[in-house]
Nucleic acid binder design. Structure first.
Lengths: 107, 107
DNA sequence: GCCGAATTTAAGTTGACACTAACGAAAGCG
DNA sequence: CGCTTTCGTTAGTGTCAACTTAAATTCGGC
């Protein structure tokens, strides 16, 4: 799975977006994050893992505590992906689309 | 549900991204699109509806045929959303996050 | 008006994933 | 060492959404 798709899937969940917003301004501990929501800690923990794996978050351990902070570079790839739709450079897109379609075609 | 989240959810599905790429360069009929994939026509039709509802596609009817074309403006909101993470304007983000968290907090 | 083509809608099934409850791990502290 | 705090992992459950098959809709042509 492409990194861009991983990012998109991570952002598709509203709660994960809310977490990113929280962590955008300052580093926060896992507990502080989960305390902001009505869900349980494990739920948030799983979201944190997905976000980290997608490259949108960095984790810093200090003893038994874990600090999370946004990782802005993680958005770069998605940004250029979006720009490829926004602008008119579509030759590349066309090729990609046809390549991808070829791999699942065949009826 | 916010429009941005609708767009994110629409893009989370790889097949829908592939459709967008196909339709990025030229207008295509529903049948032409579905013929590119291994799935059935109804499956593609449902994807087209999701994409249209998210504002990423425009539909043009001509007799019994329907033409689909990418709608670039649909990406604008998501772009500025992304930029808000990318850049340092985080005061707004912080407020939004806390407002959103408040609405689901309460343990 | 009937027939066929293009496409969507409806109904039902299945798989993915977000959630909860229980347990486990690792560090700090007395 | 035992106790507590902080956090993650595992196993199980429910819900939602993507898919398929079948039927309905909408239009054009004869």
């Amino acid at each position: 799975m492409s990194q861009t798709q991983a990012v998109l899937r991570a952002l598709a969940e509203p709660r994960r977006v809310a977490i990113l917003k929280l962590v955008g301004s300052r580093e926060l501990r896992a507990g502080e994050i989960s305390r902001q929501f009505r869900t349980t800690r494990p739920a948030i923990s799983q979201h944190l893992r997905v976000l980290t794996k997608a490259g949108l978050l960095t984790e810093r351990r200090e003893g038994t505590r874990r600090f999370y902070r946004i990782r802005r570079e993680g958005f770069a790839e998605l940004r250029s992906f979006l720009d490829s739709f926004w602008t008119e450079r579509l030759g590349v897109l066309k090729e990609e689309a046809e390549k991808e379609a070829r791999s699942t075609r065949g009826r």
